Simulated scan of single mutants.
Amino acid sequence: MPPRFLQIVSTQPSPDAEPEFNDWYENTHVPEVLRMPGFLTGQRFRLVDSVPPFDGPQYLAVYEIESDDIDATLRTVIEMAPGRTKSQSIDTTVSIVRMYEALGPQQRRADS
């Protein structure tokens, strides 16, 4: 099985654009990302609490990727970017994108 990776994306809507941001992200952006080679799953989250208080992006998207050549996968992401739908509802000045490589198998809690 090819190695697994997680792409973690922290984002924030533009001021007064949260409904548009959520609609675009959920119904347009995530489906477009999942059409790219290697992307298996995508899920979004919203920050509900933070200790200490956090003043950064409040939204998170997590994409699971499977790839034998993550550099080639990332080049494809960049090459396909112009064809993806853009939205003014996202504040790109605070977006943070990180890629993580899995270090071991996924573990699940054992039922007792």
Score class of each variant (00 low, 15 high):
D23Q: 11
L40E: 10
Q107M: 09
K86M: 14
Y63A: 06
P2A: 02
F54A: 00
R46F: 00
D49V: 06
T85S: 15
D71N: 05
E32H: 04
L60M: 12
T41N: 08
F5T: 01
D91V: 02
P3W: 02
M99Y: 14
M1K: 03
D71P: 00
F5W: 02
P19G: 08
P57D: 10
Y59W: 14
F5H: 03
H29Q: 07
L34P: 01
D71E: 12
L6V: 11
L34N: 04
D68S: 10
Q88G: 09
D68R: 06
W24A: 09
T92C: 11
L6Q: 13
E101K: 13
E101H: 01
I78A: 15
E20G: 09
G38E: 10
Y59E: 02
A61D: 13
L47H: 11
P105T: 11
A102H: 02
T85E: 06
D68L: 06
S95I: 12
A110W: 05
P31M: 09
T93P: 03
Y100W: 11
L34M: 12
R108C: 00
L47K: 11
E101Y: 01
F54S: 04
F21W: 08
F39G: 01
D55A: 14
T41Q: 12
G83F: 07
P19W: 07
R109Q: 12
S67N: 08
E26P: 00
M36A: 04
S87Q: 05
P82A: 06
S87P: 05
V62N: 09
A110F: 03
V77Q: 11
E18M: 02
T92V: 14
V48G: 12
V51P: 06
T41L: 10
G83T: 15
G42P: 00
I65G: 07
P52I: 05
D55S: 15
N27F: 05
Q106C: 02
T28N: 12
D16V: 00
E26V: 01
V9R: 14
Q7G: 07
E64S: 07
W24C: 10
A17V: 01
T28W: 13
I70S: 11
E64M: 05
E79K: 09
A81Y: 00
R75K: 15
T93D: 07
Q7T: 11
S67P: 03
V77D: 08
D69Q: 10
S67R: 03
P31K: 15
Q12P: 00
Q107R: 10
P3A: 14
N27K: 12
W24T: 04
L6Y: 13
M99F: 13
S95Q: 12
T11F: 02
E32I: 02
I70F: 14
S67W: 02
D23M: 01
S50Q: 13
A110C: 05
T76S: 09
Q88P: 06
V51H: 13
N27I: 09
S14F: 00
D69P: 01
I96Q: 13
Y63Q: 14
S50M: 07
E79V: 00
P3Y: 03
Q43K: 09
T11S: 15
V97E: 11
